[in-house]
Design a protein around this nucleic acid. Structure first.
Lengths: 357, 357
DNA sequence: TTGAAAGCGCTAACAT
DNA sequence: ATGTTAGCGCTTTCAA
């Protein structure tokens, strides 16, 4: 019942172990330069008293927080329609935990939130930030760069420029040279999807693009074009990453090009919508029209009829990597910043064959 | 480039405004008892210097952190298979943000993580905790109660005992009287689902239960039984909340009771599996067999064939409410704890009619 | 109403 | 190798 019974301090531990505060501090922080018997005594005292360091006091002097902010821009509805979000967070959490860092979650919905996040980050409450913001016109990335907090982006930020930079391992020299990001190889994955369709002997391949204000949609479209450079423009329709958008796009495609024999949708949700329209129009999948999605969003991809052939990204790994990159930067400290080689890391994707293509 | 340019302190603001630190502090914290002209001067200085209070220094003296931990037990695979997670978090985040509290996310996977979380909470780094842990045998809730941190649970914790407590607005007197939780009205929702089927004239209604080591599954089963008290035991099969589990269960049900004319599945994922098996067995839905799910998990419920009639819970609201309850408790301070009336709050559900029943 | 001063619990020089 | 000591930036008595 008695809440907040004041916790033991360093002082208390020191008294109990019969040493000075400094020695206890040393032991608690690794124990370098303290002789074994003392280390032992202190450890025991810590144990007996159930001592836990006061992080606030520590931060006050070290100016480090061992905490990282994860900023997720919510209008990003995708983020809330699929397990993406959860998987990224899981990857991030694992990595941070492994390095004794806390995860402070910042969800933003509108401009006010942006300002709030900016203030929070500028306020120096965390050592760094992991930011998801995939819209080309999003103000957040700029704000955050302004806050001067070490940051790693999830997904290529819009202003990082250049679809050129999509080659895995590349290091784009965009407008903001300090921007570090991790992304899936959207362009390469798209290429693989379309090549797969080509390999199936399809020649009239359509593309249902995602919302083109997001880099992932743009990159996937670019990948599509890489393979069918001469694509009939009528075979490309912009969707919005939703099932309904997929349906709409599929109808339009069938009306415009009844002879199409394959569809590459920029995500599984739209592919599922497309599948429904194809069925409704009496086209057999994959016999008449082969379909490939993107994401391998499990609850969807495995449950469609037929199950969806798609491009898988290792979302959790992406989260881990973001965290790892950030922590590495932090460990290096605020001295040598620009020394870094790669500012963009692109994770490879894999084709998952199911029944739809 | 120059990172970590030391931020302005209270001292600096005080100097600039020509007042004492104490006065600045007062203004920054609401400005009570400071005369208007001074308040104005200080505000301006704060503005000009871009002063942001150092939270560590503040916590050190106030012993408050304005931060709340959200603990999610991951083996809870459900949490990562659907948008549940994201929606709860969104609700929580909105509420915390509105009260200037930070959200520290703690994801746990195994026993080690439990210990870590226990230590963290006991370490007094946050003012309170919001905990999701729906497994009956989960050690986490106990650990957390032990840590002595004000806590609100999401979903009725297993040991809170008594399906009796499921009536909305009830206040169960379980083993741990201090446990406060928010839950959906799983039992009531299940009742509504089954009553709907009864209203449709169905008489051989089957139930695909969820994993019965989770209170939500137990409560939904109880709700089912409330309506068809005399249910043929062969009409009840335990699933595991996954589509594959739903398929398995549906097969078993059809084998055992070929005459069934309705199915209530404890979640949409299982319902989608059941739907597939019904189609494969040549049963028409809803003509031959009506199907109702639970959750209204959107990417699934709207995309099945036929679209799923199901029970919707207001997940985001649940998150908000949890946060609100916790903040209220914190505001009251660690004095009068037991004075609270309700220890369990149950949110009502609604039936969403689509084509499957 | 405002200011002076005493810590909050810890780390990091600096002494020993 | 260990202890002493001076703050980190803030809130909060207590005096004025």
């Amino acid at each position: 019942m008695s809440e907040a019974v004041s916790r033991p301090t360093l002082e208390a531990v020191a008294a109990r172990a019969g040493v000075s505060r400094a020695t206890v501090s040393r032991v608690v922080n690794g124990g370098d330069g303290v002789r074994e018997p003392l280390v032992e005594r202190v450890r025991r005292a810590v144990e007996e008293l159930g001592y836990v360091p006061n992080q606030a006091a520590r931060s006050l002097v070290t100016k480090r927080h061992d905490a990282v902010a994860v900023v997720i821009a919510e209008p990003e509805t995708r983020v809330f329609a699929d397990p993406f979000f959860a998987l990224q967070l899981r990857g991030i959490s694992k990595e941070l935990t492994a390095h004794d860092n806390q995860l402070v979650l910042l969800l933003t919905e509108d401009r006010d939130d942006h300002a709030r996040v900016g203030r929070y980050l500028a306020g120096g409450h965390v050592d760094g930030a992991l930011v998801f913001s995939l819209h080309l016109d999003d103000a957040l990335p700029g704000l955050i760069q302004g806050a001067g907090v070490p940051t790693v982006f999830g997904g290529r930020p819009g202003w990082s420029d250049g679809s050129l930079s999509q080659a895995p391992g590349s290091t784009p020299a965009g407008a903001s040279p300090t921007a570090v990001y991790v992304d899936s190889d959207n362009r390469g994955g798209a290429r693989e999807a379309v090549r797969h369709l080509v390999g199936l002997g399809r020649s009239r391949i359509a593309h249902i693009a995602g919302a083109l204000d997001q880099t992932s949609a743009v990159d996937r479209l670019d990948g599509f074009r890489d393979v069918v450079a001469d694509a009939d423009p009528r075979l490309i329709v912009e969707g919005d990453f939703t099932p309904a958008g997929g349906e709409r796009a599929m109808r339009e495609l069938l009306d415009r090009c009844p002879d199409l024999d394959a569809v590459f949708a920029a995500n599984d949700l739209m592919a599922s919508g497309a599948l429904r329209v194809l069925r409704e129009r009496g086209r057999r999948v994959p016999d008449d029209v082969a379909v490939v999605g993107f994401d391998d969003m499990l609850p969807i991809a495995e449950q469609t009829d037929p199950p969806l052939t798609t491009i898988r990204q290792d979302i959790e790994q992406m989260g881990r990597l973001m965290a790892r990159l950030l922590l590495r930067r932090l460990r290096r400290g605020p001295g040598e910043a620009g020394a870094e080689a790669a500012t963009g890391v692109v994770l490879s994707t894999t084709l998952v064959r199911r029944a739809s293509a």
